[in-house]
Design a protein around this nucleic acid. Structure first.
Lengths: 189, 189
DNA sequence: GTCTATATGTTGATAGAC
DNA sequence: GTCTATCAACATATAGAC
């Protein structure tokens, strides 16, 4: 059995929850503490400031991104397919940090922005190595980004993370993956 | 000569500026008033509350979206090309409202989200009518969205709206438009 | 490690003078 | 129409008890 999460992890999870469901404005120290089931003082023992809390989330983001890179490299269908396929909201641990961190990009210091920029750079390298052509790699990357951002901005309504809701105008993912595969094979031909 | 903007419009412009450059957290009534060159009381005469200020921005967004739809319909290169081409940050009046409003999506009430959902629905209709195939239309739409969101999240650093900066991993737009055209002609064939 | 105060600064909004 | 107070609510952070 998996051990129950430490208080520190519970705080981080609560921070994620509030960011995803209610936005950065609602993710106050008070609210995070209450959601995590600790007092504000207790929270501030683990994270000395809100900036430190953000840093904690970014650290988790970077860790899970490394895992994602590894899975992406090993995917039998190729990095391009992997990127688009995993860009639809699935409620995975990685999905959660990414969307949570995305909510912080505008407000806080540029550390969040920098982390995303680095992660995106690696994703692009992997896709480019898969498809060969820079323009096609760029297009495929943007399709994945569009999926992610649309889901983050419109799909997840407040209250609960409704699984599978990825925005209004998206059809099935399968046919979209078909388009991506067409792009890839066209580029490699 | 164009008449100088009314105080009401100056307030709205200041609101946009702060949202684009410094994020929603920095766009306080105090900051908006100072940027617009009026007092807080003066601001609150034109917009009775911050909610009303947001509503004012959304109204402007909807107006300019209608203009955009018209230009999109009339574009000789087709709606798909138009959508992707105009999705790169250019500092136009429309670019500004879109990015500014995007910053408000998470925090405030769902009116912003609803406005974006409606506008996106119309864009999708126009692109679908252009390219024929739903999956391809979806893919092209996502490419444009990816461009817009990436620019909004990473490209525009705080301090000033650096023109042409649309994120790290994007090559030239021209080759991207080539990929889009390939998708379109492939779908219509 | 976790809690209860408490201090300090911001933010949105009101009242009323000019 | 625009301004200057002024207020209540809230957010971050500290101090110190348990």
């Amino acid at each position: 059995m998996t051990s129950s999460p430490s208080a520190r992890d519970r705080v981080l999870n609560a921070f994620e929850d509030l960011l995803i469901n209610d936005g950065s404005r609602a993710a106050t120290l008070d609210a995070v503490a209450a959601t995590a089931g600790v007092s504000k003082g207790g929270l501030l023992y683990h994270f000395k400031s809100k900036e430190a809390l953000t840093a904690g989330l970014i650290a988790r983001l970077r860790e899970l991104a490394e895992v994602d890179f590894e899975q992406m490299r090993e995917d039998p269908n190729g990095c391009a397919q992997y990127y688009v396929r995993t860009s639809v909201w699935d409620g995975t641990t990685f999905d959660r940090v990414v969307v949570a961190a995305m909510r912080l990009v505008q407000n806080d210091d540029d550390t969040v922005r920098a982390a995303f920029a680095e992660i995106h750079a690696t994703w692009y390298e992997l896709i480019l190595a898969d498809v060969g052509d820079p323009a096609v790699a760029h297009a495929i990357m943007l399709i994945g980004d569009g999926l992610y951002y649309s889901a983050a901005l419109f799909g997840l309504k407040s209250g609960a993370v409704t699984e599978g809701a990825t925005g209004g105008y998206d059809g099935d993912v399968q046919s979209l993956l078909g388009v991506v595969e067409g792009l890839r094979s066209g580029a490699r031909a």
